[in-house]
Design a protein around this nucleic acid. Structure first.
Lengths: 233, 233, 233, 233
DNA sequence: CATGAATGAGTGTTCATTCAT
DNA sequence: CATGAATGAACACTCATTCAT
C-alpha cells in the first residue's frame, strides 16, 4: 500500500536521496535501522552494522542519511510521525459512537504499531531521551504532541456527545496513553525475555484496558459493555 | 580489622573481592552508579563519572567491580532488597475497604518508590533488559512476581468482598501496574525534558488513574468515588 | 569530430588522455581547481567541489585527471605560462629612470598578478612545496629563476646608471621580491580573515615599500650604514 | 631557563595536565607536534603520528590536550605568543639607538624564532588560516597583534627620538614584518627544496633588509623621495 | 589498598577513487 | 564520453581497562 506517498515531509526530504527509481536502498536501510535501534538502543547501535544489515557499505549509508541522528529521525518519521495524517483523517471520517472509535483506535494502533517493531521506538525514546535532547525534542514535536492531540479529540468528542462524563482532558489522555505505552515497553523489555509462564496476550490486555476506560469514562451507563470486547478484526 | 590479609587464601581468588568489612566504598559507588545509570542509561554512563561522584578514582572502582557490566548488575541487585515482605504485612493487616487499600497502595508506592531514586530501577530494567537477560530474569523473580502477587491479593480481596466485580485477575494486575510503571518511566525520560508545557502532576495523575480503576473495578457503584480523590497524606 | 575513436591506438594508453580538441572541459576544471586550491589549500579542497564548480560530475573529473594530485600539478603547471618573455621585453624597451622602472614593475605586477587570481599560485607553491617537491622544482625553474633574472636586470641597470649604489644583487633581488610575495600571501590568508581593523590597502603598502626601496637603493645618501651590520651576538 | 614560568596563560592552563612533576610528557608532545605541524601542515598532521613521535599512545595525547586544536594552540603559545612578555621587557629596558634596537630585534628574532622550527608556524598559519578560522583568530590575537604592537613601539621610539622620519606607523610595521615573514616562509617552502644553487644566507639577507630599513627610515637624508609615491596608473 | 597515567580498540563521519550503466 | 551510486580507508576523539607506583 502506498502509504508513504501521503507522508507529510516535515524536512527537506532527505538532503541526499535524489533519484526516485532506486528507493529500495533507503528502504532497506530504514528497515535495518529500525531493527537495530529497537534491539540495541540508539547509542549502542553502530551505523556500520546498520549498513551491513542493509547489505551496503558504511559510506553508502551516509549517502542517504547525513548522520546517525538523521537516520534515526527518518526511522521515526517512516514508522510513527508520518502516519498521523492518515489517522487524523480516519478519526474525522469515523461514524459511530466514540466508544467504538476509542476501541477502533486502540486495536488499530496495536495492529499497525504495537504489534510491529515500530513499537520499539517509544521504548527507545524513553530509554535514551535524557542523552539525546535533540532527539527528545524531535520526538516530542513529531510524535507525542500529534498523538496527544489525536487522543484529546477523541475524548472531547465523547464528552461533547455526552458519552463520556466531563473530565480533565490532559489527564484523560494519560489514561488512554499509559496502557498503550506500557504494553509497547513491556513487549520490548521484560515481557520479551523470560516471562515465558504467562506471555501477556495483547488482545486480552487491550480488551481489559478498554473495558476499564469505558467504565471510567462512561457517563451514564454504569456496568455496560463488559460482554463483547472481542476485537472485530 | 584486616586479619584476613594475613591468612592464606584457601579459596581461589575470585576476580573481585567483596569483603564485607568495608562496604562503605562499594556502597557509595553503587549509589553513584544508580544515579548515573538511571539518569543516562547504561551505555552513556562513564565509569569515571561514577568513580568521581563516589569520591574515588577510576582504578578503585575496578578494584571492587571487575567491569562496568558487573557494576551494573550489582546496582540492580543491590536495590532489589525485597521490601515486599513489609508491604505484604501491611496489606494483610490493612483494615478498611479494598478501595482504600488500593488507594493506599498506589500513593504509598508513589511516596516510597515512585517519587524516589528507587523508581530508577524499573526504568533501568525496562531500558536494558534486552542487553542483560540474566538480570532481567533475576528482576522477574525478585520484583515482578512478588509485586504481581501483592496486587493479585488486593484484587482477590476486593472480589471476595464483592467490592470489585469478578475479573481475570492476571489482566487486572496489569490494569494496576501499567499506570504506575508508566509514571515512573515518564518522569525519568521524556517527561523530564522538553515537556515544558504541562509537567504531569503525579498526584493528579494517580488520582485520575485511581478514579478510573475504581469505576472499572466497581461492582455496583456506578458513579461513585469521584469525590474524595484527595491524597490523605 | 571523434575520428581518433575509431583509429587503432598505436601508443600505450596513458592513464589519462589529454586530447587537445576538447580542452573546454579540462579548462573549466583547472579554473575551478585553481580557485579552490588557492582558497582552501590542497588538502581541504574536495574534488567533488571542483567538479561541481566546473559543472561536471566527480567521475568526469577523474576522466581528465587520474588523481587529485595530478589535478593539482596540472593547475600549477597550467598557470605558469611564462609571461616573462613579455615582461622582459617591456623592461628592455623601458625608457626612463630605473626608479620609475621599478615603480612600474611593482604596480604592474600588482595589477596583472598580485590583485588577480594568479597571485594564488605563489601562495599555493609556498603552502604545498613541501608536499610536492617535483612541483617545487618545476616552479623554481619556471618562475623563480626568470623572475629573479628580471629583477636582477633592473637592479643592474640602476647600478650601471649610478642611480643605485653598488650592491650584492642576489640580496637586492630579495629586497624587491619579499614585499611582493608577502603581500600576495597576506591577502590570501591571514589578511583576508579576521584582520578586520585595517585591511591593508595594497596601494599604500606598495608605495611604502617602494619608497623604502628608493631610499635604500639610492646612491647619493651620504652616511650609509653599510659597514658594521655584523650581528653582535 | 624557566621561560615558561612567565608565560601569560590566556586560557585555563591546559584543562587536563595536573601533576607538575611529569611535564616531560607534554614537552615531548609539543616538540613532536611542532615538528609535524610545520612539516606537513595542520590538517595533514595526524594526532596519532604526533603521539607516536613523542613515544606515547593516541589516548595519552588527549590526556594532555583536549583536542587537536588545543594541541596546536599550545604549540603556538609555547613557541611564539608566550615570548612576547620577555621581548617587550627587553625592548623597554633597551638602552641605545633605535637603529641598534631594530637591528637587535631582527637578529634576535632570527636566532630564537627564524632559525628554529618555530618559524614554520607563521608559514602554517598563512597556508591554513582560511580553513580554520578559529585558529586564525587565535593567532591574530595571540601573535600578530602583540607582534605588531612590539614593532610599533620601536618605530614610535625612533620617530620620537628623531632618528626616524615621521611615517604612517601602520605601514611602517609591514616594512619590518614583511622581510621577516618572507624569510620564514621561504625557508620552509621553496627555499628548503631544490634551491641548492644559492641557499640564501639568512645573515646576509637580514643585513640587507636592515640596511634598507635604515636608509628608508633614516631622518636626515636631504632629498627624500617621499613626494611622488602616487601610482601612475 | 588506592591511585591516575597510559593504553588501544572502537565510533561517527569524510572523501578520493572506481565502475556499471 | 559522462554519470553518480557505491566503496572503504582514514581521521579525530572516547572510554573501559590495566598496572606501576
Amino acid at each position: 500500500m502506498p502509504d508513504s506517498d501521503t507522508l507529510p515531509r516535515t524536512q527537506a526530504d532527505g538532503p541526499i536521496r535524489r533519484s526516485r527509481r532506486k528507493d529500495a536502498r533507503p528502504g532497506e536501510l530504514l528497515a535495518a535501522a529500525l531493527d537495530l535501534f529497537v534491539e540495541k538502543g540508539y547509542a549502542a547501535t553502530r551505523v556500520e552494522e546498520v549498513a551491513q544489515r542493509a547489505g551496503v557499505s558504511k559510506g553508502t549509508l551516509f549517502l542517504y542519511f547525513s548522520s546517525k541522528e538523521e537516520l534515526f529521525k527518518a526511522v521515526v518519521r517512516e514508522n510513527l510521525s508520518g502516519r498521523f495524517a492518515q489517522w487524523n483523517d480516519e478519526i474525522e471520517r469515523f461514524e459511530g459512537s466514540t466508544r467504538d472509535m476509542l476501541r477502533y483506535c486502540l486495536f488499530n494502533w496495536w495492529e499497525r504499531i504495537g504489534s510491529t517493531k515500530a513499537s520499539g521506538i517509544p521504548k527507545l525514546m524513553m530509554s535514551e531521551a535524557h542523552n539525546f535532547p535533540e532527539l527528545a525534542k524531535f520526538y516530542q514535536t513529531e510524535v507525542i504532541q500529534p498523538g496527544n492531540t489525536l487522543i484529546e479529540r477523541i475524548l472531547q468528542r465523547g464528552v461533547a456527545s455526552a458519552e463520556f462524563r466531563p473530565m480533565d482532558i490532559t489527564y484523560g489522555v494519560y489514561l488512554v496513553l499509559a496502557p498503550m505505552l506500557f504494553l509497547a515497553m513491556w513487549r520490548h523489555s521484560l515481557g520479551s525475555c523470560c516471562t515465558n509462564h504467562q506471555p501477556l496476550d495483547p488482545q486480552k490486555y487491550l480488551n481489559a484496558q478498554l473495558d476499564m476506560l469505558m467504565h471510567g469514562f462512561g457517563a451514564e451507563t454504569p456496568h455496560s459493555l463488559t460482554s463483547n470486547q472481542s476485537h472485530p478484526t
